[in-house]
Amino acid sequence: MRVGRGAAAAALAAVVLTATACGAPSPSGGGDRASAAPDQGGRPAPDPDGRPLALVYRGPAACDGCPEAAHDMLEHDGFAVRYIGPKEQDHWGPDALSGVALYVQPGGTNGQEVTTAWRGLQREPGFSPELVRAYVRGGGHYLGLCMGGYLAGRNPGYGLLPGDSGQYISSDGATVTDEEDHLVDVSWRGQPQRMYFQDGPYFDVHGPDADVLARYTNDRAAAVVASYGAGRVAVSGPHPEAPSEWYRDYDLPDESQTGLGLGEDLLHTLMGTSDSPTAATPSTVPPASAAAAPTS
């Protein structure tokens, strides 16, 4: 669970839940709640500039600031970005993902476990897990960040991975073993990096269609791109989208620019545009800083 410092006392009185998955300290911008209305068929309206459309979930199963951070990373990479959720102009329904290039399940609800977030999603009018599965199976793209990575797995989740997700802090040899906010060490395409992390998942995946981009130091997969039907799925346990404010709020060395480069690599690999000159590669992603990460 991640809370602002002013809420720390209240948090101590809260019930402790396992795998609380990826809250954020505060909203980080990324536009207000107004978005372009769907067309008359219930489909998201096309972007007038011809940019690919990314639809980011924003609702009870996402934490404050997590959809907005994903929005900013995606917009930086050339997507038109809109939100879908109970208080958005885009709502769940049979045509909700029609014409969408990318669906994003961002970091999860503050203080709630994965099962609670999943139940919250299932209570939303018009939502069905099969909407997302059918969208990806038919050639769509799914990006799961932290909680969205957990939910790409099974029981509970969409079941999009060739394997499953698990709680990193409970895994053997984990360098972070609590639910606080930290930098976590990973090897991204063989290069050491440090990324913003709060109780994110690892991924137990297998098969020729699973591309492990990053591993934690205990060799568990930290970022993966895999096939699902005719579509593709990308997941990350750490937060490549984390803005500078998240680091500052928890007195962490600011690796936000490194994270942005890794996020671009993840996105370009997912979308099949890794040969783009703007795609991050091991030679263009800056190495981790020498500052020690406050891990436990």
Rank of each mutant, 00 (worst) to 15 (best):
R2S: 10
G4N: 12
R5T: 09
A7S: 13
A11M: 11
T20S: 14
A21E: 06
C22F: 09
S28P: 11
G29Y: 02
G31E: 03
S35M: 13
S35W: 12
P38G: 05
L53H: 07
L53I: 08
Y57L: 15
R58T: 13
E68I: 06
M73W: 09
L74I: 05
R82M: 08
Q89M: 14
Q89H: 13
P94V: 04
L97C: 08
S98I: 08
A101I: 09
L102E: 08
P106L: 02
G108T: 05
G111H: 07
Q112N: 12
V114C: 01
L121Q: 04
G126F: 05
P129I: 03
A134C: 07
G140H: 06
Y142M: 06
L145V: 12
L145T: 08
G149M: 00
L151I: 06
A152Q: 04
L161T: 05
D172R: 15
A174F: 02
A174H: 01
E179S: 15
E180S: 14
D181Y: 14
D185Q: 13
F197T: 02
P201M: 04
Y202S: 09
D211H: 15
R215Y: 15
R215L: 10
D219S: 11
V224E: 01
A230T: 09
A242S: 00
Y247C: 02
Y250K: 10
Q257D: 10
L262H: 00
E264I: 11
T269C: 11
L270Q: 02
M271A: 10
T278V: 13
T281N: 09
T281Q: 09
T284F: 00
P287I: 01
T295G: 07
S296A: 13
